[in-house]
Each structure stands twice: as C-alpha cells, then as structure tokens.
C-alpha cells in the first residue's frame, strides 16, 4: 500500500475508533464510575442513530421503494444556519434526548431493584428496539434500511477527502464530551457515584439518595451513547436493524472499556483505539487468523482475561485522594 493509501486508511480508522470512544465514555459513566451493568448498549446505539437519521433525512421517495412515512429533512431546512448550517448538532441533541427519555423510563423502573436486574432491562431494550425497527417498516424502512442519510458539511470537500473533515468533527465532539464527563466525575457528584459503586449501603447511610444518583448517571451515559449513535449514522450513512448486532454494538465496546481501564476516561478512549486497532488489524493476518469468528472468540477471552489478570485495564483508575482543606496540615 502506498503512503497516501495508508494515510487515508488510518483516517477512516480513526473516525470509527473515535465514534467507539464516545460509546466507551458513555459506558464508563455507567460501569466505570457507577457500576451499572448495561449489556444493551446496542439499544441506545440504534435509538440515537435512527433518531438523528430520521430527523435529518429527506422525506421518503416511493420511487426509491422507501416505505417509511417520515423524514424530517432538517439537513435542507436551514433553521440553524449561522453562516454554517449546524443542523448536525440538532440531530445529535435529538438523539441524546431520545436516549435520555428511554433511559429515564427504564431506569425509573429497574434502578430501585437489585443491580443485576438492570442488565436484563438493558438487554430487553436492545432487543425491543431492534425488533421495532425491523418490523415497523413505516418507521425506518425495516430491513431495507435507510440509505440517504445526509453528510455534515458534505459540500465543503470532495467525497474522498471527507473523512478528514469528519475526523475533525468527531474529535471536537469527543473532546467536548471527554471534558464534560471528566468534570462531572471529578465533582462531588462524581464522588457520590464512585461511593455508590464501592458500597451502596454506605453511600445510602451517609444520606445520599442512591436511586437518584444512579438514575442521573444512567441517563447521562445513555445520552452520550445516543450522541455516539448519531455520529455513527452520519458517518456510515446506511442504517438497518442488522447494523446493531450485539457483537459490534455492545460486546466490542465492553472490551474497549475493560482493556483501556474502566473508571478512567483516558483509558476508555485509549481502549477504543487499541481494541478497534486489533479488530481491524487482524483482518490483514494470513489464513485462519483473519477469521472473523476468531476475533469474536478473542473479544470474549480478552474481557475475561482483563478481569482475571489486570482488573484495572491498561491505565487503571486514577487514585483520587481528597485534598486537605485550606490551612490544615496534610496528614503525615
């Protein structure tokens, strides 16, 4: 492969890894900081992707065998035109809101119960969302999928250079989310989340409304996953229910967080790049090593191995020690 090919390949790689890093950040809020066991990331992924796609795509054209009933066409209406038409960010916000509302509803029912019930609830949402988009063709064209999802700022650069532009967009969104999550978990609010993760009873005993904090964390994580879904939709620009199979929409993200270091936002992002690198890199290996099913096995083994051998992942959680208050001597 010549240099230009390698560069353009790595830019495409970085775009996908960056999108996965957004999901890993969201999962880090759920699992890494609060200990919420979400095995249905695919549900929020799909919901976010479809929400933004449906709102921004042109209305359906029966001549193209499009059977869905509604396309919001936000990309053409220009109602957030500040010199540059920022419809894209409205799509992200809508995706975030949709996931937040679903997370509120499900979290409200299940977060009061034992913590592993949430796993089943998230799995249930993922399956229900998938079946809904598969069976209800009037919503999003069923298994034929949506394939006219607009590009953000697509007219600015030539299609073969578009990945460069989108990488910038991804990095801006990822950076903003990183800073927001970092700030949130370093705040007193984040400290309560970690206290809940370590010992729920103790947190309850110190007067914290554990249910409220868990619900807030669940919604925050889901919102981030919704944004990730929207970023994905406008990158791949084709969505069908088959896109959201548990392997690439849930399991891989778990592997990313565990490998990078759960409880560490830098680790979550690093893990996304490392695991996505292993995932896409192994397809160039010779013979049986490029078997996609082998990668499937490897993802599972990787998760178990990290838990057994290096529970903190590559980076591990940063130790956060409370600073001594102003004017007091540090403990010796």
């Amino acid at each position: 492969m010549e240099i230009a090919g390698i560069v353009s390949y790595s830019v495409g790689f970085a775009v996908m890894a960056g999108i996965y890093a957004v999901f890993a950040l969201g999962l880090n809020v759920h699992w890494g900081f609060t200990g919420l066991f979400n095995i249905g990331i695919a549900g929020f992924f799909a919901l976010g992707a479809y929400t933004s796609a449906l709102l921004t795509t042109q209305p359906p054209d029966p001549a193209l065998f499009e059977e869905f009933k509604f396309g919001g066409n936000w990309s053409q209406l220009g109602f957030l035109d500040l010199g540059v038409d920022l419809w894209f960010f409205l799509g992200l916000a809508a995706a975030a809101a949709a996931c937040g509302v679903i997370a509120l509803a499900v979290g409200f029912v299940t977060l009061r119960l034992r913590d592993d019930y949430l796993a089943m609830a998230t799995l249930g949402i993922a399956e229900t969302v998938r079946l809904f988009f598969l069976n209800e063709e009037w919503v999003a064209n069923g298994s034929k999928g949506l394939y006219r999802i607009p590009k953000f700022l697509g007219e600015w650069v030539s299609p073969e250079r578009y990945d460069y532009l989108y990488l910038v967009v991804i990095l801006v969104v990822l950076g903003a989310l990183f800073l927001a999550v970092e700030r949130a978990v370093k705040s007193p609010w984040g400290r309560v989340l970690r206290a809940i993760r370590e010992d729920e009873t103790a947190a309850e005993a110190s007067g914290k409304d554990v249910f409220r904090f868990k619900l807030q964390a669940f919604i925050l994580g889901a919102v981030i996953m919704g944004i990730g879904g929207a970023l994905f939709a406008h990158n791949v620009r084709f969505l069908s229910p088959l896109t959201f199979d548990p392997l690439l929409a849930t399991f891989v993200i778990w592997a990313m967080l565990m490998v990078g270091g759960s409880g560490n936002n830098r680790g979550a992002i690093l893990g996304a790049f490392v695991v996505w690198g292993i995932w896409t890199g192994t397809q160039f290996l010779p013979g049986v090593f490029s078997d996609p099913n082998l990668r499937f096995l490897a993802i599972g083994v990787l998760i178990v191995a990290v838990i057994l051998v290096r529970p903190g992942g590559i980076l591990g959680e940063e130790r956060r020690v409370a600073r001594p208050a102003e004017g007091q001597a540090a403990p010796s």
Binding site: W31, F37, L294, R295, G300, L302
Partner: peptide, 19 residues
C-alpha cells in the same frame, strides 16, 4: 462484587458463541 462475576460471564458468553 456480584456484578463483576456477571461481567466475567458476559465474556464467557461471547467466547462460547465465538467458539
């Protein structure tokens, strides 16, 4: 914690299906 055990079983589930 029990949830870590469940997490490990998720890894096992993925590995078994890969197998």
């Amino acid at each position: 914690n029990a949830v870590v055990l469940a997490m490990a079983s998720l890894g096992v589930a993925i590995a078994l299906r890969g197998l």
